[in-house]
Amino acid sequence: MDAAVVLALRNVTKAFSGLKVVTDVSFDVREGQRTALIGPNGAGKTTVFNLISGAYSADRGAILLQGTDIAAKRPGERTVMGLARSFQNIRLMPHLSVVENVMVGQHARTRGMMDLLTPLWLKRNRAWRDEAESQLRAFGLGTYPNEVTANLPYGIRKKIEVVRALMSHPKVLLLDEPAAGLNTRETGDLKDFLMGVAEHGVTLLIVEHDMSLVRSLCEHTIVLNFGLKIYDGPTASVQEDPAVLEAYLGPRHNAA
């Protein structure tokens, strides 16, 4: 029943000026699964994301992407190897149009100088733009290809960022609080959208505070507290776990 492990952390530790933010964290993310990474504020969730994507380098431990340790690789190399991410605060290029932003996501798949130095409207390069536009259409964003992203509504920009991340053809997609700043209707919309992404065969690892989204989207949940992993199992039983309850609600609740 278990699918292959596509991303694995092994005893990953990270400290900032002596303060341990992530301590000996190990977990597996299985192919095709939708996994949530949750925990109270300051639990180290975003730090774990930054360690996986390469924004920070781990002090100790291994990060295995399809069996290869990527802990020493630069962020761009990790993207080429099959990792992609979105950001908690949307990081689209503000002066680029929607389709250009999505085409930046294709960069990891370019090969050689001809791809870089020939005009994009040449016949040999037409496929890039066609692919970007058809992906946007496939995710219901076809209306906006030439609009500068800075002018678009928040929820739309969030989705564009995910489409951009998909353009590198990732094995694993990391999403940092995709529902933050969205209302209930937009969150429901996003859930359908991410289900669609997962159906394309992309493994999802999601940091999220919105438990309703986690419950409806993710079958597997990992809980961090003070940089330690305290739960790793099905989402369905996370709220019955004593350690998780204690982390979120304090020891008194657990005793009661």
């Binding site: 993207t79 990081r91 290029m93 503000p94 930046v104």
Partner: peptide
Amino acid sequence: LAMRATHDDDTVAELMGI
């Protein structure tokens, strides 16, 4: 395009493999 992406956000550009 890579030049303009670098101008707008060099961290993300780097992440995208630029």
